[in-house]
Design a protein around this nucleic acid. Structure first.
Lengths: 245, 245
DNA sequence: GGTTGACCCTGACCTTGCGTCAGGGTTGGA
DNA sequence: TCCAACCCTGACGCAAGGTCAGGGTCAACC
């Protein structure tokens, strides 16, 4: 007859595991010898290895208990289930492997590929990494707050980069990030941006969102703060009848 | 800015999970608004998705914390590690799948294939399933108690089944399992077995183990109990000089 | 016959990664 | 004004064992 540690070794588990199975009623308690030690027969080894085979496959102990007392037909059905579940897990792990290798480049995980393309386009135009990160963050917030509007925004943004004047202004803004708010170079830039806004004023689509993104931007740079303030002031002067909500 | 539930939805986790990550210090606590609600920026979404990417791949949260603050070089090394670990898990799951499908036939999991062959050879000879199970149990106990001796035993057993007389006796014993201990057919069988033992007495290799297996057998059948007693008695009569240990 | 080291026993708390109340406050739309 | 749908903290629960603590046994060796 077997001691508990020999039984455990036979099945490749710890002694504690065997006792745990007794505790939860999965493996019946065997006879004890004169000094209270558990003594196991061969059937216990068979049972234990069957239990481990199922447990290793991820079947919860509670379900194993039921399975071992099931009819062959149900058992076979359950085994088919378990097998399918294993295959699903394998597929998932394979997917995790793919994603893990993408961890180095952060945004690929978070954003749809079209947006990643836009960010790379910006990098290609010479936009600073700091600005690209701000842009990335805006996209993330937009996606979280209004995923529905993403395709339109993607089209708009690409259209902007297809237009040389828009692109020029974009790059000029980018360069101004570290300027002093009183830098004289800001004045012509503000003029150009104001003109651009008048020209494109049709698409002031989501003022709430725009404010959100703006707050991000102004936090990052006093010069940009001044640009935004100046533009807001000029826009207000153009439409003095409006009341603010 | 994002509320906790929007952040959670963006990363595909529950609100509770986000709070848990705050609790363990994995994700920094963000600013609160006037009513004490947490308010998140885009960086939190990036961080959370990076965390989930690692966590989904099975990296413990404690290790993720260290990884996120690691240098790119160590990070890359760790990612390679994790990837290898994932591959290992995939292989293991594949193996579990194979084993699961073998659960129907019990002994294949527990015993080496040579022994399974022997058991099948017995079934082929017409040995009862009850006797096959006893034999199987003996093999399991032998393997647990003295795995070293298995190859020799396997050879011996196969040699036995290569000998027609041994095989005949084996089958005769098998048939006698349900007989009454006083059945007259037992007497010639005992004679034959005694003769066989004299002829093969060289290989009384492991008396301890033999006794163990015998106890299994005699528990199962009074007729076999009588056979064993009779054989022991005759063996003793042949060697009256021996003292019992 | 005493000591040593490897076993065995029970009982109880620790771990991971959250789920799930309980008991309350906030917000926004009808 | 009310309701649903949020948000907050705090605390206990779960699987599947790990890991002491505190003790008894067994076998071998000196």
């Amino acid at each position: 007859m077997l001691t508990i540690s020999r039984l455990a070794a036979t099945a490749g588990v710890t002694v504690r595991t065997v006792r745990h199975y007794h505790h939860v009623g999965l493996l019946p308690e065997p006879e004890r010898d004169a000094s209270g030690y558990r003594r196991y027969g061969a059937q216990a080894a068979v049972d234990l290895i069957r239990i481990r085979t199922l447990a290793d496959a991820g079947v919860p102990l509670a379900r194993i208990d039921a399975l071992l007392h099931a009819q062959p037909a149900e058992f076979a059905a359950a085994v088919t289930d378990i097998d399918a579940e294993l295959q699903r897990k394998i597929d998932q792990l394979t997917d995790y492997r793919r994603r893990i290798t993408e961890l180095a480049g952060g945004e690929r995980l978070v954003l749809p590929p079209e947006v990643v393309d836009i960010l790379n386009r910006m990098r290609g135009l010479g936009v600073s990494e700091q600005r690209v990160r701000l842009e990335r963050d805006s996209w993330i917030l937009m996606q979280a707050l209004d995923p529905h509007a993403m395709p339109q925004r993607i089209r708009d943004k690409n259209a902007g980069f297809d237009d040389p004047e828009t692109t020029r202004l974009y790059l000029a803004c980018d360069q101004s990030v570290d300027w002093d708010p009183h830098d004289p170079r800001l004045d012509p830039l503000i003029d150009d941006l104001d003109a651009w806004e008048i020209k494109h004023e049709r698409d002031s689509s989501q003022p709430g969102l725009l404010k959100l993104v703006s707050s991000q931007i102004s936090e990052a740079s006093p010069a940009w703060q001044r640009i935004l303030d100046a533009l807001a002031h000029r826009a207000k002067q153009r439409q003095p009848s409006g009341h603010d909500s």
